[in-house]
Design a protein around this nucleic acid. Sequence first.
DNA 1: AGGAAAGTTCAGTCAAGAGTGAACGTTCAT
DNA 2: ATGAACGTTCACTCTTGACTGAACTTTCCT
Lengths: 155, 155
Amino acid sequence: MPTPARDGDQSALIDDFGLHIGRAMGWPPMAGRAAAVLMLSEAPMTMADLRGALEASKGSMSEMTRLLVESGTVGRFKPPGSRQYVYEWRDDAWAGCLQHQLDATTGLLALAERAHARAAGLPGRQRERLREMHEYYTFMVRSLEALLDQYKASR
Amino acid sequence: MPTPARDGDQSALIDDFGLHIGRAMGWPPMAGRAAAVLMLSEAPMTMADLRGALEASKGSMSEMTRLLVESGTVGRFKPPGSRQYVYEWRDDAWAGCLQHQLDATTGLLALAERAHARAAGLPGRQRERLREMHEYYTFMVRSLEALLDQYKASR
DNA sequence: AGGAAAGTTCAGTCAAGAGTGAACGTTCAT
DNA sequence: ATGAACGTTCACTCTTGACTGAACTTTCCT
């Protein structure tokens, strides 16, 4: 039996985790809570386990597990001889988080590039500001890539 | 007269900027749009100018300018002899963004610390995961601080 | 192949959050 | 000091997005 995740004062911790991590990752609160439950569970959990721990609907859990797996923080396996998937917090989950942040920043760099490209004819002040934005996101993408490498290497 | 910010195809750009930057900073969309308008404006703008450019209410603009100034991306001045404040995109706006990201990460580190402190009695797996989370956010806060210094120095 | 269990999808409900506008407080030139 | 211009606050409306549950699809054991 997996750790009962919602006993006593872990409950508040899970809500807190859920809200903040969810917000940081751009997830709905329920996804953050599911991540917290999995992180704090000793054993891998089935969707039924998660639903029990969070009192959530089937549909919601299906969507949340999808998000978590996609983000690279949670793994999904089907143990041989079992019909149900089990979900487990990954050892390299935090690298997944950092990757996620890098992806988001890369998206903003793309936006800055598009804007900057169109800026040829603009007055100096505006063009300069778009250049600075582009420069900033270029810096950030390069730096986050370096951090990710460094983090991965340190393990 | 400030640059008319909502003419033709800048409008789409502003909505796009607004949405993405707003999301990245945890702002409502209108704040992102206001940031975009100010970034692309040649001259400083009054609240009335902003309201005109964005077709927004007084109340909304009051809140949005408050957010922008607080974030360190926009400056607010009262030119001598004028009754109205003017708002202007700051030269060091992007450092403000990075600072904001650092603050958010520091908040998550605090959460990880609280959780980790309570983890003394937990089974090995869970304690190990909380340790990893703590380690990750420690790494991130340290690294982002370094990036911020580096970015500031490079200007 | 048949069928039961697991998982996904999607229309609908409900709650959270964004934006409005009127009432209120503040500021500053006279 | 006065009052007109400016800015802020807050109760309300409307929009967006999270979550539910029932219908549907897929999987896999016999």
